[in-house]
Amino acid sequence: MTDQQAEARSYLSEEMIAEFKAAFDMFDADGGGDISVKELGTVMRMLGQTPTKEELDAIIEEVDEDGSGTIDFEEFLVMMVRQ
């Protein structure tokens, strides 16, 4: 866990972390443990947004600390705390 990830967790109660985990699992449609650009786009479109591929890439790049091209749960928490 990076310093950013530990800091993000410090702002959240266990209840909030559990709620974010449920949301993360909804995004992680294939159950792979991370959110891909495609999965992020699908959920955002379900919520009425129309992000471009470039916008989706930028969202993932902003929090993808390990350079995997996807968002894992710890990175997702950082993203949610920043919102």
Rank of each mutant, 00 (worst) to 15 (best):
G69E: 06
T52R: 04
D30R: 11
I59F: 10
A8S: 10
T52E: 05
Q4Y: 10
T2K: 06
K53S: 15
D34A: 06
G41W: 07
E54A: 12
G33S: 03
F20W: 08
G67F: 02
F76P: 00
D28K: 15
M80W: 09
F76W: 01
Q5W: 05
D25P: 01
G41N: 08
E54L: 06
F27Y: 09
F20D: 01
F20V: 08
L77S: 04
E7H: 04
V78D: 10
M80S: 06
M44W: 01
A23P: 01
E74D: 04
F73Y: 07
E14D: 14
E62Q: 04
G67Q: 05
Q83S: 13
G69F: 02
E39D: 05
I17G: 01
F73W: 09
K21Q: 04
K38R: 10
D25F: 04
E7K: 15
I59V: 09
G41Y: 07
D25M: 09
M16R: 11
K38T: 13
A22N: 15
V43G: 00
Q5N: 05
D57G: 06
D72R: 13
I35A: 01
E75P: 02
R45F: 10
S36V: 03
A6P: 14
A18M: 08
E19A: 08
T52D: 07
D64M: 15
M1D: 12
T52N: 05
Q5C: 11
D30I: 13
S68C: 15
T50N: 09
I60R: 03
D25S: 07
I71G: 00
T70K: 14
A23V: 11
R45T: 09
E75T: 13
E19V: 04
E74I: 00
D57I: 03
F27G: 07
F27S: 09
A22V: 15
D28C: 12
E39Q: 12
L77V: 12
E7I: 14
A58W: 05
S68G: 15
G33R: 02
A23N: 03
E74F: 03
A18R: 10
P51Q: 04
A58R: 10
V37Y: 15
I71W: 00
A22I: 03
L47W: 01
D57W: 02
Q4E: 14
T42W: 04
M79V: 14
G69A: 06
I71Y: 01
V43F: 02
S36D: 11
V63E: 03
E75S: 12
G41R: 09
K38H: 12
D57M: 10
V63H: 14
D28A: 09
Q4V: 12
G31E: 03
I71V: 13
D28Q: 06
T70W: 04
E61H: 08
T70V: 12
D57N: 07
L77I: 07
G69C: 03
D72V: 06
Q49A: 15
E75F: 03
Q5S: 09
I35D: 05
M79R: 08
E15M: 15
M16P: 00
F27R: 07
S36P: 13
R82Q: 08
D66T: 09
S10A: 06
I59R: 06
E15H: 08
K53C: 02
E55L: 06
A22T: 09
M1C: 15
M79L: 14
K21H: 15
F27T: 04
E14C: 03
K53N: 09
F27Q: 09
G48P: 00
D25W: 01
E62M: 07
E19T: 08
E54H: 05
D64I: 07
S13G: 10
A29M: 10
L12R: 02
E62L: 08
L12H: 14
I35Y: 00
T50Q: 03
T50M: 02
Y11R: 08
K53T: 11
D66N: 09
E19Y: 07
E54G: 02
A58L: 11
F76K: 00
V37C: 07
A22E: 08
T70D: 06
G67H: 08
E54R: 10
L47V: 11
L56H: 07
E61T: 11
D25I: 04
D28F: 02
A23H: 15
A6Y: 07
I17T: 04
L12S: 01
E62T: 13
M46C: 12
E65T: 07
S13Q: 06
L47H: 03
F24Q: 00
I17L: 06
R82E: 06
F76C: 01
M16E: 14
T2W: 05
F76N: 00
L56V: 12
E75Q: 13
M44S: 03
P51E: 02
S10F: 04
K21Y: 02
R82L: 07
E15W: 04
R45V: 14
D57K: 02
D64A: 04
K21A: 07
Q83A: 15
P51L: 12
E75Y: 04
D66A: 08
S68I: 13
L56E: 06
D66P: 08
D30Q: 10
M16Y: 04
E39R: 12
G33F: 00
D34H: 04
T52A: 07
E74S: 09
E39S: 12
A8Y: 06
K21T: 02
S10G: 10
A8W: 10
V63Y: 11
T52Y: 03
M44K: 01
V37T: 14
L47M: 06
R9K: 11
D3S: 09
R45A: 14
E55G: 11
M1H: 15
S13K: 05
M16S: 11
M46F: 07
D28S: 07
E75K: 03
G48A: 04
Q4K: 03
S10V: 05
I60V: 12
K21M: 02
Q83C: 13
M26C: 11
L47Q: 02
I35M: 03
G69H: 10
I59M: 14
I35Q: 00
T50D: 12
L47E: 01
